[in-house]
């Protein structure tokens, strides 16, 4: 069947609308503050003010924010990978009586809104003396995350039993089976979990809002919000800062494009 004739124009128009916000952000981030105020709706900058990107580093402590964000990402990614893979192995590959029941609790917590547990968690974290510490956000990652446990369990279930049986015959304990067979075979799934957790931590705003009050401990997300709410008129600078903050997500997208748009090579339907 042929494509309808109106399809291409309609798609191009939609894509222009979808691309406009980010394009305007990129273009705005290289206009001078004076130009943005004088001519807010000029499309291309009269003078390309690349210095905005340098100015942003001097006018707000971007280095500190970046360091905090990276510390959070490092802590949360390693915590999640370790805890979720261990729990997923128990649920998928150890035949013990409580495992079905425990898997049920994993699914149940997925349905529980964060609002219900937010306040008691805050009280708990404060009681532990972790308020205003990055550990308040990192530590819970070491106790597993329902979604990642679920994802890894499904992957571990797909590994061939014969490999594990062979390991058993060679006298490996569960600990040995886990580290020598399951983990090396699961790099794709572990990479996916690591990436998801990285993005989640990078983007996380609610956690730092709740647990951090000292600006020296702020990650980028909180720093950006603080900057916008106190220097809202410095449009050129917060557009540049927002662009910097968005970059990793874009990089990741272009690196893993095939993965995200998995159907790109398959045929799809034809009308």
């Amino acid at each position: 069947m042929r494509n309808p004739r109106w399809l291409l124009p309609a798609l191009v128009a939609t894509c222009v609308l979808f691309a406009a916000p980010l394009s305007l952000m990129l273009l705005g981030s290289v206009k001078s503050g004076e130009e943005l105020a004088r001519n807010p709706h000029g499309l291309f900058p009269e003078n390309w003010a690349w210095s905005n990107y340098l100015e942003v580093f001097t006018s707000l402590p971007l280095g500190t924010y970046l360091r905090n964000t990276l510390l959070l990402c490092l802590g949360c990614v390693s915590g999640s990978l370790l805890s979720c893979s261990l729990v997923a192995y128990s649920l998928a590959r150890i035949p013990w009586q409580g495992s079905r029941w425990l898997f049920g609790t994993v699914l149940l917590t997925l349905l529980l809104p964060w609002q219900v547990t937010m306040i008691p968690r805050f009280v708990l974290i404060s009681e532990l003396g972790l308020y205003d510490s990055l550990w308040a956000i990192i530590l819970p990652c070491f106790l597993g995350d329902a979604f990642y446990i679920f994802l890894l369990r499904q992957f571990f279930l797909s590994l061939p039993q014969s490999l594990l049986d062979a390991g058993r015959l060679d006298g490996l304990s569960h600990w040995g089976l886990f580290w020598r067979i399951v983990v090396p075979l699961s790099y794709p799934a572990l990479t996916a979990v690591g990436l998801f957790q990285f993005i989640e931590t990078w983007n996380n705003f609610g956690g730092p809002l709740l647990y951090l009050s000292d600006p020296a401990k702020f990650p980028l997300a909180s720093g950006l919000e603080r900057f916008v709410s106190s220097y809202g008129d410095q449009t050129h600078l917060f557009l540049a800062a927002a662009t910097i903050f968005t970059l990793p997500a874009f990089l990741l997208f272009f690196l893993a494009q095939r993965h995200f748009l998995g159907t790109a090579s398959s045929g799809g339907i034809k009308g």
Binding site: L86, V87, S90, L91, I94, W96, G98, L143, G144
Partner: peptide, 15 residues
């Protein structure tokens, strides 16, 4: 097996 299962699942049990 049960004790191994519990040990591996301990992060989630605590969580």
């Amino acid at each position: 097996e049960t004790s191994a299962g519990l040990a591996f699942a301990s992060p989630w049990l605590l969580g």
